[in-house]
Design a binder for these strands. Sequence first.
DNA 1: CGGAATTGTTGTTTGCGCCACCAAAAAGGG
DNA 2: CCCTTTTTGGTGGCGCAAACAACAATTCCG
Lengths: 391, 391
Amino acid sequence: MKPTGSNLDAVRRHNLGRILDLVHRQGALSRSVLTRETGLNRSTIAALVAELVARGLVVESNPDTEGVVGRPSPVVSASDTTLILAVNPEFDGVTVAAVTLGGSVVDRLRRGFRSGPSVARVVTETTNLVAELRARLPEGVQIAGIGVAVPALVRASDGMVRLAPRLGWVDAPLAELLAEATGLPVTVDNDASLGARAERYFGAGRGIDDLIYLNGGASGIGGGLVLGGRPIRGAGGYAGEFGHTFGTEGGIALERAVTRDALVAAVAPGADIDDVELERLLGEASASITATQAEVLGRALAGMINIVNPSRVVLGGFLGIIAAREPELLAATVAKFALVPPGEQAEIVRAELGADLLLIGAAEPVIDRLIADPAQIPLRQDLGDEAAPEK
Amino acid sequence: MKPTGSNLDAVRRHNLGRILDLVHRQGALSRSVLTRETGLNRSTIAALVAELVARGLVVESNPDTEGVVGRPSPVVSASDTTLILAVNPEFDGVTVAAVTLGGSVVDRLRRGFRSGPSVARVVTETTNLVAELRARLPEGVQIAGIGVAVPALVRASDGMVRLAPRLGWVDAPLAELLAEATGLPVTVDNDASLGARAERYFGAGRGIDDLIYLNGGASGIGGGLVLGGRPIRGAGGYAGEFGHTFGTEGGIALERAVTRDALVAAVAPGADIDDVELERLLGEASASITATQAEVLGRALAGMINIVNPSRVVLGGFLGIIAAREPELLAATVAKFALVPPGEQAEIVRAELGADLLLIGAAEPVIDRLIADPAQIPLRQDLGDEAAPEK
DNA sequence: CGGAATTGTTGTTTGCGCCACCAAAAAGGG
DNA sequence: CCCTTTTTGGTGGCGCAAACAACAATTCCG
């Protein structure tokens, strides 16, 4: 069965995790703020922070005198000597990046593929890139684990890729294979769900407990759902897979009615351009295509809004371009087809995070594991004069 | 901000609550089972159970020798000396019932109304019924609180009824008024959400983490959503309010296309019959009406299933009758309009709980409060020779 | 009837957060 | 410029909850 009753160890773990969580989400915080925020005693906070420092998870620094009365409180911030490796395999290549506990990408590598890669190919290439990246990292950094964002249906509990149409995979035990190849703990999850998490914590969905996230890419539309402050996967991982829902009455899937290719075809037929270029060209052209697509998108959104009543809808990728170019039309269409109260409560905004979105998201589950038990990172023995050991 | 870090008191509260939770949900459990289930030490369980007994929340009894080796372990079950009062105001009357921690109704009273009642009327009638019911209860029982299930949009955090079309209320601070009038703690929530919880814990949704619940009553269709094991309300409490969603392409709300009145009109026009009678009459008549309604219902369900990917759909009230009479048609319609994978994962079943559904559900939030802090119930002083004091 | 298995019971131990006290560091006021 | 006020860090002792260990009780089985 599930975990259960808590003993004293659990208290320590929970409190360490709570501090790590606050520092991760809100950036640098003074010890006095942590005291207020957690309700714990000053001395307790001091002891907990000391342990996190000893494990290389946070660092303390002197505050810049802020003009407040009283003794200054040391500022606690995420350490950059503990990193997470984020991996994003796609049909045309795989990206590996080093992400800090604070949620920023410090280094990245990419290896392209000519054809759709097999699972084995992705595992070996990823392992190579991981080794390469680790060699480039400064001495003394430790890797907390590997987080993978994959465009597929995933059983997150054990990192099994159930179905990846784009990659042609079925039932690939990706987490297990990568863990074996690299010797590091690995988490695997759906890319859109992870994108939703990233936008929720660090982007356009900050602080929003009920949101729908939709991302439009070259290969289709993916989405993620956050309800009651928690990511929702549904029984089989299909919750929030809005690309396959029906946007029109005729029963055409949304991701076949609203496509990036249609936008590209209208302004630069056949060209291979990125979203920035696409938006620039659309700005110069007439808006009729985005208008048509905005209407279909709006109808589909209305259906979702009626059912889950979110307070915000975040649109990324080329859907973000549509949202930026047709805000009134989109809002009007939603208002027309959604019920009045939920429709009024749902604010439609464009995603804020760009290229790093999936990498930041991919690191999140690893950080979750860290927050659940910070003691999994060994204490650094500063007893001798040697540097802290890696791995 | 939210609660936070945990200290030793929190551990004790959590563990007491965990035991109470297990006993509440799974019925009678032996102390050895509790030990295994919680992972706590035998001696710890003994101490915790002793405290719950002292607070009148559980009782210990001798097990019937089960044919197992080893010393018999005392059975812990919910006490019936601590009760929750469940209240269900409707447009034509208000029901007050006494519910045990085990989730069964032991007594009930109802007062009818001629016309739609004002908030004040409901409060005074409820207060009277509460007093009457308490007078009938045996000596020594204590009331943990009042839980209200109301057909309205509710802000559960403070029990404010935001909008109750059927009752004609707007922004009625029902929890506050009832708490003042009765001197007991009061929780208020939407009736359909509470019904969903009741079915999930004690009915057709037992153990299901992702489910949709829909209930059809004389005044319309209400629903509740449980995702990831938690009730989902959405930003404004509209999540799961499926009655207002569109079941057909023409934009007619589901609860106007699928109605109880249509069924009644087909078999006994104008008659005032209950669901049991209605189902019997339908059994004798032709099935064409239920078939039409099953199709519309199926289309609406398909839309919901595509978005939230539940593993079960529970249908109550007259929708349960439709589900029982047209299982194949309903399943076929869902299969036709839902995507294949989520459609296959969603099992459509009839609700199991009958008339007590809302009352059991209404008690749940009160029990939640009890589980969150069992120490809110005072210790019974058995030091003297007097009985335990009430209130 | 005796051994094995399981669990309740009791007293002791361990570890975590709290508390009280003192010291340190900044702001403000005369 | 010094002194008071305010806020926070640091330290040692304390209380408390759960774990642990040893023993007793109860049942099954041969």
